[in-house]
Design a protein around this nucleic acid. Structure first.
Lengths: 196, 196
DNA sequence: GTCTATACTTGGATAGAC
DNA sequence: GTCTATCCAAGTATAGAC
């Protein structure tokens, strides 16, 4: 596989990531992707075998590398903090991908079937941490299901939401350009308190 | 306007709500809507003037009636609790609508422009409550922006997510069939702790 | 007001030249 | 490997009968 091939494939993936995140899978056309990527229409089919294959290729490259951390569950609070930090980092690194994933989850799209495996291991870790914490007495909550929904919802909800920007128009510049670690620390603090 | 007209319009709205929530605006066809509603293809255009008008009609009926509560901000904790209860009730009453709204928000769809007004008043209330609580010292948080994102994310994230159901397969039946008030109380508890 | 049939547009995928 | 031109399926909206 020569260099040019990788260039084109990467350009298509980049364009698709941007457009899928913004307009959804159905709302994005192959023509848009190719125009954004600056390549001919036929190349999506040639390199990937169709629009849907491009979609899956987006996740195959990024997500599996993420959920590799092993949690001992000896110190659930530390594990929780680590998990949140990792997720916030992923969300900052790949906002479009998280955005897209969120769409597919709430739509219960037919594509979720193949994405399920990635997502499951991710949230299974979180569930294990929560249960270990409850057993050890450092977390208190009545409904595991509700608690998981709170946390996942708070984590996955995209930060780049113009519809919310209006809410900050009159605010003093108190919190612009926060670093990943600051955001993660803030998130851990909020969620950990919720578990008391 | 005779009764039959309302019946057909209601059937179309019901079908559209269900399908939009599940497949998104772009992922839903007028043919699907009409088939689901059991009416002829032409009637969407006849009664509403097109697919997009059906979409807006869905929100015009439900959302404005919601955001009418007035908050005095004398007791931010009580206001917060009331706000959460109202939202949880809305989410339980109109899960498809919240689902759809969430999609449109995170996609930053072109339709959000017309929905913005509804959404803005809703979250402006929440923002006011948070700021009042911070001023009075009953809420502590560093970033208003992050905090709003946590709460909105936790609230708006759909509860009916098959992709998450697998996470509960081995759980004992600890928390099935929770009532609206139970869920709301649980939510208030979690989020209020996060604000300490 | 509701139906069937159809016009018109757009989308995904491919054929074939280079 | 990449392009242009084209095919075919599916979409929205409308015309016209009832």
């Amino acid at each position: 596989m020569v260099q040019d091939t990788n260039d084109v494939k990467a350009k298509i993936l980049g364009a698709a990531k941007k457009l899928f995140a913004r307009n959804g899978f159905e709302g994005t056309t192959v023509r848009q992707i190719c125009e954004e990527a600056g390549v001919a229409l036929a190349l999506v089919s040639y390199h990937f075998g169709g629009k849907e294959k491009v979609f899956y290729a987006l996740f195959e490259s990024s997500i599996p590398n993420y959920a590799t951390a092993i949690y001992t569950l000896q110190d659930p609070e530390a594990d929780f903090s680590h998990f949140i930090h990792e997720f916030v980092r992923l969300r900052q690194t790949e906002p479009e991908l998280i955005n897209l994933l969120q769409q597919e989850i709430i739509m219960q799209s037919p594509r979720m079937e193949k994405l399920q495996a990635y997502v499951y291991t991710l949230w299974k870790q979180l569930r294990n941490i929560l249960e270990a914490g409850r057993a050890k007495g450092c977390f208190q909550f009545t409904s595991l299901k509700q608690t998981l929904h709170f946390i996942i919802g708070a984590l996955i909800f995209t930060r780049n939401v113009p519809a919310l920007d209006d809410l900050f128009e009159t605010t003093v510049m108190e919190e612009n350009s926060e670093s990943v670690d600051e955001i993660a620390a803030c998130t851990v603090h909020f969620l950990l308190n919720g578990l008391k």
